[in-house]
């Protein structure tokens, strides 16, 4: 069974984001980029499923500019067999991304699509669900456990109320939550091997995708700053301070 895994290049989760003073966006020059953490988890899950003999081939896919090749090389070092680079230099919104990813999934005749539950730059949390809708496939979002059997998957999902278990028929779309697994550390030999693995390139047009009218960002602002408060020395002082503000 073929598994497709999407990986997005995003600003590293440790970077303290700065908003540009003219409100046109956030500072990305000279900032560290990494693979979206949820996508690393999706990738790790695919590799584990392959190690268990449930998946036979893993294809990593990204949409973005030339620099995303790095992202694909990381996915290949994790254990993807080959990669697909959908080349697009301008920003791609979730519906457009989903249309492109759905086209790749169809073309590859894959059985399983693993994505991250959200990209930590746009925090949209949409793409996986949109891919599933466009392909009329079942979806299991926010997965914390995946078990594959013949023709179906049993997935535990992290929902507001607790843990929900669904059974879905394959082919299917699954989006990874944080506790699905802990991604492995990449070893040098794997990073070297990844350099030789093939990457196929397409444009959105090759995939038959024309971006529609998307959301237009008019202004980006920093959130209101919380001011540093006071440090109290004792529990009694804390209680007095909270009483003083009528909080207890």
């Amino acid at each position: 069974m073929k598994a497709l895994v999407s990986v997005k290049r995003v600003v590293d989760y440790n970077v303290r984001i700065q908003v540009k003073s003219d409100g046109s966006g956030v500072v990305t020059d000279g900032v560290k980029f990494s693979v979206n953490p949820f996508d690393e988890i999706a990738m790790e899950e695919a590799v584990r499923l392959k190690e268990k003999g449930k998946v036979t081939e893993i294809i990593a896919v990204t949409i973005g500019g030339a620099k995303c090749e790095e992202t694909l090389r990381t996915a290949l070092a994790f254990g993807a067999d080959r990669a697909v680079h959908v080349k697009e230099e301008s920003e791609v919104q979730p519906l457009t991304a989903a249309q492109a990813l759905a086209a790749v999934f169809k073309k590859e005749e894959a059985q399983l699509f693993l994505l991250g539950k959200q990209a930590i730059d746009d925090d949209a949390n949409q793409t996986g669900q949109m891919v599933a809708a466009l392909l009329d496939l079942p979806q299991a979002t926010f997965a914390s456990k995946v078990e594959l059997e013949a023709g179906k998957a049993t997935v535990t999902r992290e929902v507001d109320a607790g843990l929900e278990t669904l059974e879905i028929d394959l082919p299917a779309v699954i989006t990874a939550d944080l506790r699905l697994n802990e991604p492995r550390y990449l070893k040098l030999p794997d990073i070297m091997k990844a350099k030789k693995k093939p990457i196929a390139a397409f444009s959105l047009t090759d995939l038959g995708v024309t971006p529609g009218a998307g959301l237009k960002a008019s202004k980006t602002a920093a959130p209101p700053k919380r001011s540093k408060g006071v440090v109290v020395k004792t529990v009694d002082e804390l209680i007095a301070a909270l009483k003083g503000k009528g909080l207890i």
Binding site: L95, D123, A124, Q129, L134, T141, G214
Partner: peptide
């Protein structure tokens, strides 16, 4: 913006051909 809404609404948006505004 609960797990229910986040799971459901993009599926609706994609079928309608709309880009969703999250959160």
């Amino acid at each position: 913006g609960t797990t229910f809404g986040k799971d459901l609404l993009p599926r609706v948006a994609a079928k309608l051909g709309a880009q969703q505004v999250s959160d």
